[in-house]
Design a protein around this nucleic acid. Structure first.
Lengths: 231, 231
DNA sequence: ACCTGAACACCGTTCAAGT
DNA sequence: ACCTGAACACCGTTCAAGT
């Protein structure tokens, strides 16, 4: 007899690590990582907070598990995007891989912040970096240059934008706001007026995150390409 | 009569925002940002947690205050380092300014993480970015290129390393560890063996953070320099 | 094997009350 | 004007106890 034999009764789906982690990711997607508390997560699963400790050592282990789940999602997406490279095509392959990783992060905007608090790096992330080194080696990189490249890319290799200050945050500034700004920050004010003037259409969110990410990424990849050819 | 007239008594230094923020920074320096709680901060100041609310609206305001204090420290250090630029020297001036900012962060390793949680950017940080745009303009940058440059630098403009995964974490790996790693991460393992072999002296912390930061920074600055000259 | 209730130590914060 | 005690809602976590 299967465990849910009692016919009419509302059969409880038993918890397991998989279900717990999945629910935690869902909770984070909906309300940010700070909304993931043991008590709220348990409620989401129709259980008590203390039940979670049977499937997860503690909250830190839970967060490690979430981070790992996203890491695997990143790695899978990047692997799907990664075509065989070789020679000059190393750059295109690397670009695709990194932009694919970025797509995953856009679905989990809380993930970068979580990754930074984890002390151990997920194997899936290490696998991602291993693949990047492989692409660079195919492209003729020395191990030394590949090593510098990983450091130079930093978390950008995972698709992180890591911009603390958005020089064009949200809506294009009103003329009045720019005028007030000009006294304290003349150069930024001048920059904003000119850029806003050149592109008057985009009154909202006129800094395209994707464009800026690709600009920075290409700047680094192009620089590395030069170094690769004249070691 | 001054308030501390009562001669023999242990005169209490009154709290104020300045003192509260300074104590909070000290607490963070000693035990990380998570050790800054209202109760512990009050204890450090010889007061009760509730007293803090007279000088700080709430914890978020406290954290904003700490972030602002570090931001001003960064800005001051960067201003001190910033010599007049002009022409080709824009790069050296920018480099000095950013490396000076980095020195401050090394004293407050919790600051990058804190900055990322703040919703509003400190005026001191905006001032720092304004100065960077000024340097680039002196070097002949268009406003458009300067704008892209700010995005490309991202938090690196403040000296952040933002590396989630250190490809040579801590001690140089033992031969046994590399061998075990090789099956799952062949490219990284090969890279590690070669680099460790080339530099057998540095058995501990053989990735020099400062060197790697400067490598990445120069990669970006050099790329921007090319763009500046052929717009 | 899996789940829970009661309890503990620790948070941020409010509010009425003290000097 | 500045500080505090008591209290509340919320954490993570332990431990003995239930099925």
């Amino acid at each position: 007899m299967a465990p849910q034999a009692r016919s009419g009764s509302r059969t409880r789906i038993p918890l397991n690590r998989e279900r717990v982690l999945r629910a935690a990711v869902k909770l984070a997607d909906e309300g940010g990582i700070e909304s993931v508390t043991m008590r709220r997560l348990a409620e989401e699963l129709g259980a008590e907070a203390m039940s979670l400790y049977y499937h997860v050592a503690n909250k830190d282990d839970l967060l490690d598990g979430i981070a790992d789940a996203v890491a695997m999602e990143i790695n899978r997406a990047a692997d799907r995007a990664g075509a065989p490279s070789g020679g000059a095509s190393w750059k295109a392959a690397m670009r695709r891989r990194i932009l694919a990783a970025r797509q995953v992060l856009l679905r989990h905007p809380w993930a970068p912040g979580l990754f930074e608090t984890r002390t151990t790096t997920s194997p899936a992330i290490i696998g991602h970096f291993d693949a990047l080194v492989g692409l660079m080696r195919d492209g003729g990189f020395s191990h030394d240059l590949a090593h510098h490249a990983l450091h130079a890319l930093g978390s950008r290799a995972l698709g992180f934008s890591q911009e603390l200050f958005d020089p064009g945050d949200g809506a294009a500034p009103s003329d009045a706001a720019v005028a007030e700004m000009a006294s304290q920050f003349p150069h930024l004010a001048a920059m904003l007026t000119e850029i806003a003037h050149d592109d008057p259409e985009s009154t909202l969110g006129w800094c395209d995150d994707q464009t800026e990410f690709e600009f920075g990424l290409d700047l680094i990849l192009d620089g590395l390409d030069d170094m690769r050819r004249q070691p």
